[in-house]
Amino acid sequence: GLTEEQKQEIREAFDLFDTDGSGTIDAKELKVAMRALGFEPKKEEIKKMISEIDKDGSGTIDFEEFLTMMTA
């Protein structure tokens, strides 16, 4: 499992990506986040990433899903 410290770091990354503070990361926010990390993702790639992570089919990534992605 994760230490509380690791969870906190992932939470901070999540909050950075969640620019509108909605508690979820949408495609637009993910794209901005990827760019910040030096990637140039295409729209299809973003969609694919979200569909792989987005277990509940909401079209957005919540913290639990993000946590799973970061620790996979």
Rank of each mutant, 00 (worst) to 15 (best):
G59P: 04
E5F: 12
A27G: 04
L30W: 06
F66E: 00
I25T: 01
F63Q: 01
E12R: 15
G23H: 04
Q6I: 07
T3M: 04
K7H: 08
I61V: 05
G23N: 03
V32T: 13
I50F: 13
I50N: 02
F17I: 14
M70G: 00
L30F: 08
Q6L: 11
M69E: 01
T24S: 09
V32Q: 14
E4N: 10
A27H: 06
I61Y: 04
D18H: 03
E4M: 09
M70N: 00
G57Q: 07
T60N: 06
F17D: 00
D54S: 12
F17V: 14
E12N: 13
K42Q: 09
E12S: 13
G23Y: 02
E4T: 09
P41S: 09
K28Q: 10
T60D: 08
T71Y: 08
E64K: 06
D20H: 04
E9A: 12
L2C: 11
A27N: 03
F17W: 09
E4W: 12
I10T: 03
A33F: 15
E4P: 13
D20T: 07
F63E: 00
K42E: 14
S58H: 06
L67F: 07
E44D: 08
V32L: 15
L16F: 11
R11V: 01
I46F: 11
E44P: 05
D20Y: 04
L37P: 02
E45H: 11
Q8Y: 11
L2N: 03
T3L: 04
T68E: 08
E65M: 14
D18N: 04
A27P: 06
L2R: 04
K55E: 05
T24D: 08
I61E: 00
L67S: 02
G57P: 05
T68M: 12
G59H: 06
Q6N: 05
K28H: 11
E65R: 14
E45K: 08
D20L: 04
E29V: 11
A33I: 15
A36V: 13
M34F: 11
K28S: 11
L30R: 00
K55C: 07
K7G: 03
K28C: 13
G23L: 02
T3E: 02
T68F: 12
G59E: 05
L30M: 06
V32E: 14
F39Q: 03
G21N: 07
K42N: 14
G38A: 02
G59S: 07
E45W: 15
M69A: 07
T71F: 11
T19G: 04
D62W: 04
L67I: 07
M34Y: 05
F39V: 07
E65I: 08
A27Y: 11
S22I: 02
F14A: 00
D26M: 09
E45S: 09
I10P: 01
T3D: 04
E9F: 14
L16C: 13
E9P: 04
G1P: 08
E52K: 13
T60Q: 10
T60S: 07
D26W: 09
K55D: 05
E9K: 15
E12G: 09
E9L: 14
K47P: 04
K28Y: 10
T24V: 06
D26T: 11
E12Y: 13
T68W: 15
G38V: 01
E4H: 10
G23T: 02
A36M: 14
A36Q: 09
D18G: 02
L37F: 06
L16H: 05
F39W: 14
E9T: 13
K47N: 10
M69T: 02
Q8A: 10
E5G: 07
T60K: 11
S51N: 09
M69I: 10
D20V: 04
M49E: 02
E4F: 10
D56V: 07
E5M: 11
D54I: 11
I61M: 04
E52F: 14
I50Y: 05
A72E: 07
A72H: 14
G21A: 06
